[in-house]
Design a protein around this nucleic acid. Structure first.
Lengths: 304, 304
DNA sequence: TTATCTGTTGCGTTAAACGCACATAAGCCT
DNA sequence: AGGCTTATGTGCGTTTAACGCAACAGATAA
């Protein structure tokens, strides 16, 4: 698409302003006082505006200035323009003061459910006019959104390396065995994959990063886990552990509320691939982030 | 009333424009080509705009430029501003091309009725988007309107001298005796006040300039006319002459349609004050008139 | 990695706006 | 009518903003 190539005529803002001040002050001298410039300058600018527009704006040859019809139009236009500008600047002020704006946060599957609610609640209440968009998706989806500037921030588990992605912060987030308090494994300090294989398991589907990490561990140890149940809902997985005496494998964060309440326990797994996983906050390399996003970023950092 | 003294911040138009062209062209270099300036200038203006607004507008450090949220707002604002400016300029264009505008014409009492309709019709049809305001009033009212710029032009009978009023054109417009074709005076070439005193008369009220001129003539000749009927409606006066065999005294113009049709006759009066009256087109001294007004002025000149 | 785009910065140049001083014109007052 | 006051318009030298050129640095693609 080719844009117009017409040379823009652009009515000089300063000249319009001078005209307006002249009318408001009632004379060029008064206007020049208010503007802090010499009267000659005012006179010239108004004259040049008339030349630009090709029409007389003030009726000359009299003591008090009086606008012509074109002058009235010009002043009306200027006033309108000013009010629009003020609206624009005030909008900008909101943005500068972090009061407005949109932050898009992409979350990996590890966070599906009601995670982060404390952080997000703090953010939305501290900046009530900021809109927060949360996009959920698999780890790869998160990366794509961040790489293509469709999301400002991403949080996901064990993100693969990508030249366009910068890992801002990574914190250990081992995948643990989640069981109910009454479960036989509940008293153990550590479990092996072999231990787990003896119990009924609930696991996420194969396209989930968690499941891929589990697969890596299975490969390495030669032990293969067969889930009794597969679900992309973390809640279902957790319910399976809590009410059906089963076991599920999740990052600690995903069940932190229940472990703190005592209804579930999270047991470390003695496998490197699972115990050394990290949750990562990612953004696009060299991307300039709006201030609001930085705030959320810091909140998330503190949370992890 | 004191106006605001806040120093206006005024977002630079050129910088906004450069920003806009940059995003439209996709790069600063392309924009500089289109704008016909060096790329360095574009870069600087955009940087200065960012400084003025206190916010980054484009995300730096990448090949293709991308706007920040503030940048989006700025471009949106600029586009809006441009469309407003175009509307303004096009309005102005109308004005310049005489297609639009308002002309205020003040008419004295001698023109009440349906006079000038040919001229006014020609004017309104030739400049269909020009608005024509006609204010009717006594001669003094006409002069006040013109003196105080509430009317562009005035037409009245025998206007008194006034330093603020300039007589643009004056044409003789004697006050004549108006009678029906069958009236005894209808055959005379000239009548005196004494002649008139013998018939039933219809005259305008005393606050009309016509009546004041008649009074001057009465004073001078020592003959006093007693009207059978007094009315501020020229139509009533003329009807009195036409259907009730009476006489009325009016400027020739006021009954020109009827005299041409032959239903009324206008007889000169042998009195200096009445036979030498003039109708005058007046305007304020040194007033600059819009082009549209000049056109009407010339049309009126031609008519008289 | 190199080649070639991009945006940025330093510095001398051009053009717009300015201030000062003075000329000119309009309105007011006697 | 004529002087007096006050306001706008003009010539000219000065200041400031925008510019062009050239060199540099960062980023993408081969």
């Amino acid at each position: 698409m080719r844009l117009k190539t017409t040379t823009r005529v652009s009515v000089s803002a300063i000249r319009l302003r001078y005209l307006y001040e002249v009318v408001a002050a009632g004379s060029m001298r008064a206007a020049s006082d208010k503007l802090g410039v010499a009267p000659s300058s005012v006179s010239r600018q108004v004259a040049q505006l008339e030349e630009e527009l090709g029409l007389p704006l003030i009726e000359k040859g009299r003591r008090e200035i009086a606008l012509t019809e074109a002058g009235e139009m010009a002043v009306r236009y200027y006033r309108h323009q000013i009010s629009e500008e003020e609206a624009f600047l005030s909008e900008l002020e909101d943005l500068r003061g972090l009061r407005k704006g949109t932050v898009v946060l992409a979350l990996g599957e590890g966070f599906v459910g009601q995670p982060l609610s404390a952080v997000l609640h703090e953010f939305t209440s501290r900046y009530p006019d900021m809109r927060l968009k949360i996009r959920l998706g698999g780890t790869n989806e998160v990366l794509r959104l961040v790489a293509e500037d469709e999301a400002h921030l991403g949080m996901a588990l064990e993100t693969p390396v990508d030249p366009k992605i910068r890992v801002w912060k990574a914190v250990p987030q081992p995948i643990k065995a989640i069981v109910s308090a009454k479960h036989p494994l509940g008293r153990k300090k550590k479990v092996t994959l072999t231990d787990l294989a003896r119990y009924r398991l609930a696991l996420p589907p194969r396209n989930f990063r968690i499941r891929q990490l589990i697969a890596q561990a299975e490969q390495k140890e030669g032990v293969f886990l067969t889930p009794a149940i597969t679900s992309n809902s973390l809640l279902i997985l957790k319910n399976f552990a809590q009410f059906e005496e089963g076991v599920t494998l999740l990052p600690e964060l995903a069940s932190i509320a229940e472990t703190q309440a005592g209804t579930l326990r999270s047991i470390p797994i003695s496998n490197e691939a699972l115990s050394q996983t990290q949750v990562q906050i990612v953004l696009r390399v060299r991307r300039q982030l709006p201030a609001g996003v930085m705030r959320l970023l810091h909140l998330l950092e503190g949370y992890l």
